[in-house]
Design a protein around this nucleic acid. Structure first.
Lengths: 210, 210
DNA sequence: CGGCATCCGTGACGATACTG
DNA sequence: CAGTATCGTCACGGATGCCG
């Protein structure tokens, strides 16, 4: 089955041929937070129909964005995981999220919300602040917790709390939103005590310092 | 008429609500090369149907990406032009094009091609090379010519040759492709004489130097 | 129960024809 | 030239069913 293409000899068109279909980019966003099962993906993408989700995952596997891995026998489940090629989309998604942030007005009654959706906009500010330290930062929001891995260039993040975080941030929804929209600096908020920082290692110090 | 939305309180979803529909991003790419008329847009976007193009332009105008401007009486025409908000998409499109560049294999018989489609991938390398000079560079390809404006941070480009370029680059398709795919460095090619540089101002010197 | 496949109604899209 | 109108087709959204 041939996929539909823009048929243009242009790098942007080629990118859109692969990730331009509805839902594909949001599936990548989900998988940036780590491997997930079909049902969990379906739950965190309200509105996607089951057949479209299945079709997208197949296409993405075919295109080398995603690998499907069977978990060891006790858990009779399979997880979908980003390939390196898929993870390479992080800068593009960050740039897109940066651009979309000003459009985040008030939350509409119909808007779904997941904690890890804030990881994308927070990641860069957090990584800059942590310079030049490396380590793991837990981020606790009202809606849930995720953790960020800062290591040189290839930052990443994942669902839930970390086992041994080097630092822990605690934010309320309003502050987190302001940072996501680019309206406020994480650093300023930490200095003013509006964002809590726990931990005493070098990474926690770096987040508080200056 | 309400537009369809992912209904997620996430900056990436919001961006996709605006530019996620088919053709929208490619229309932005076209307008990044300067104001264009409806018919010219239609000609450079083979495959888009006239009603879809008209609908997209209306939506983009409504969303503040594009402004429609009537030209002075002698030319009884209207042009579409990117707003500052639309131009802010440049970094995101550059990141996407970077990601898509490895997918540019051989040109397929069905692939359309326009000279200015190479401006997006070339722009950054060119701007880096020109550091710290500013000015206008003509880029001559087999398929046509465009020119790049380098001025501090907000680089841009436009169709056709410039009136008074500070430098002129001449590339054949193969070299241009290699640079676009990230397989080769523009600087290396200039040093080896594979890419011609004309001009004697500081900008032309900068392109040749080091 | 997780992981889809199938069916069906609706809306988006592509091609062509037509109009001010 | 700059779109609008019409129409057939396909992608999508929602629900339900199947199968290990």
């Amino acid at each position: 089955m041939p996929r539909r293409s823009y048929d243009q000899y242009c790098p942007l068109s080629r990118a859109l041929d692969v990730i331009g279909e509805r839902w594909t980019v949001l599936i990548v966003r989900e998988l940036l937070a780590g491997p997930r099962r079909y049902t969990d993906l379906h739950a965190d993408l309200p509105g996607v129909s089951s057949d479209v989700l299945a079709a997208r995952l197949k296409e993405m596997e075919h295109d080398g964005l995603v690998t499907r891995r069977r978990l060891p026998p006790p858990a009779a489940a399979a997880v979908y995981e980003l390939s390196p090629r898929g993870r390479d989309l992080l800068p593009a998604l960050t740039a897109l999220a940066d651009w979309g942030a000003p459009d985040l007005g008030e939350r509409r009654p119909t808007d779904a919300l997941r904690a890890h959706w804030f990881a994308l906009p927070l990641l860069r500010q957090l990584a800059e602040l942590a310079q030049p330290c490396e380590g793991v930062v837990d981020v606790r929001l009202d809606e849930g917790t995720f953790h960020v891995l800062i290591d040189g260039a290839g930052h990443s993040y994942a669902h839930g709390p970390a086992e041994h975080p080097d630092a822990r941030l605690t934010l309320d929804s309003r502050r987190c939103l302001a940072v996501s929209r680019g309206r406020a600096s994480l650093h300023e908020m930490i200095k003013k005590g509006q964002v809590g920082v726990e931990g005493d290692g070098p990474l926690a110090q770096a987040l508080r310092s200056q």
